[in-house]
């Protein structure tokens, strides 16, 4: 079973699955807090238009989890606010 790392945990994924899909399948609904209100967000539009599902991938913030295809060495983290520099 292929896995990628999310906040230090291993998340399984199927070939071709998006990070959002894999996280939801693993029971996670949110992986981000908004900058001003600290509100939790996950998938909203699911197709890359709304930019709600932002996640940090390989150290880079503002990646859309619903578009990013999961791969073995991917390191994914919760994005807090605008993320890390």
């Amino acid at each position: 079973m292929s896995t990628f790392e999310f906040d230090g945990n291993e998340v399984p994924f199927r070939e071709g699955q998006t990070v959002a899909g894999a996280l939801i399948a693993a029971g996670r609904r949110t992986w981000r807090t908004t900058p001003r209100g600290g509100r939790s967000r996950g998938v909203f539009c699911g197709i890359g238009v709304c930019f709600d599902c932002l996640i940090e991938a390989d150290g880079v913030s503002n990646q859309r989890a619903c578009l990013l295809v999961a791969t073995e060495s991917l390191v994914v983290r919760t994005q807090a606010g605008v993320g890390r520099p």
């Binding site: 998006t18 998938v43 909203f44 539009c45 699911g46 197709i47």
Partner: peptide, 18 residues
């Protein structure tokens, strides 16, 4: 969290089987 677009629900269904 838990509010999604209708298209988003369908996208997860058709693309991920979720």
């Amino acid at each position: 969290p838990g509010v999604v677009t209708a298209g988003g629900a369908q996208a997860l269904l058709k693309q991920d089987g979720i």
